[in-house]
Amino acid sequence: MSKTSLCFFTVKNIGLLSCNHYVFFCYIVDIMIDDSKIIEGCRSNRHKYQMALYDKYAPMLRGICLRYVKNGADADDLLQEGFIKILKNISNYVETGSFKAWLKRIMINQAINFCKQKKLLKYTDLCENFDFDTEDANDDYDNRKVENRIIEANLSPQQILSLINELPDGYRMVINLYVIDGFSHKEIAEQLNISVNTSKSQLSRARKTLLDKTNELIIKNKVSYEQEYK
């Protein structure tokens, strides 16, 4: 007896849950199917398993999309394209590695291609002779203080995401790839067709801009909080 029919049997006999509850219950059971079954089902192009894969991983994948594109509509388009790409390539997945990491990697590549296609990537302040040591040393002390303040402020992911979305496209792309997704500067340079130095300079400036913006937000929040309680 399958899980779904077992659910139906239980629900029918207990008589406690309505039809809507039954559908919801089956839906929950279906998305609880383990990855190996889902992968096998997707490989044989079975719609039920493909949708189970979507239901299980779509929120995580949309989270990635939202980091790379600014608005929700683009994120949805990207999610759809990326998901079809996942289904196309699922037969190539070797089950030795992490499935989640594999999905993430495909979605990131798709996001990069999406941004390239839509010409969303514009690099501001391109500087090939960027002196990282001097620039970092000058701001080191100030940055440290601001960083501590930001960490203490305990911002939510949504707040940080909105701050990242305010960054110029090139900054946002590099900070996402390097800091959050763990790409090296060499990999970023290859993926975005830029030099390693450009990648480094974009990252350094992205960090600084993000710190400034976060600091501004914290100060603004603090002021509004004080005004509220006075």
């Binding site: 949708m51 779509a58 999610l79 960083e147 992911p157 995401l161 960090r207 710190l211």
Partner: peptide, 21 residues
């Protein structure tokens, strides 16, 4: 700030709308 970003987005997810489904 790098650690903050990493920890914030490690398990970040956003549910898509039923229309997208």
């Amino acid at each position: 700030i790098d650690d903050l970003l990493r920890s914030s987005f490690e398990d970040f997810s956003s549910a898509p709308s039923p229309a997208v489904r």
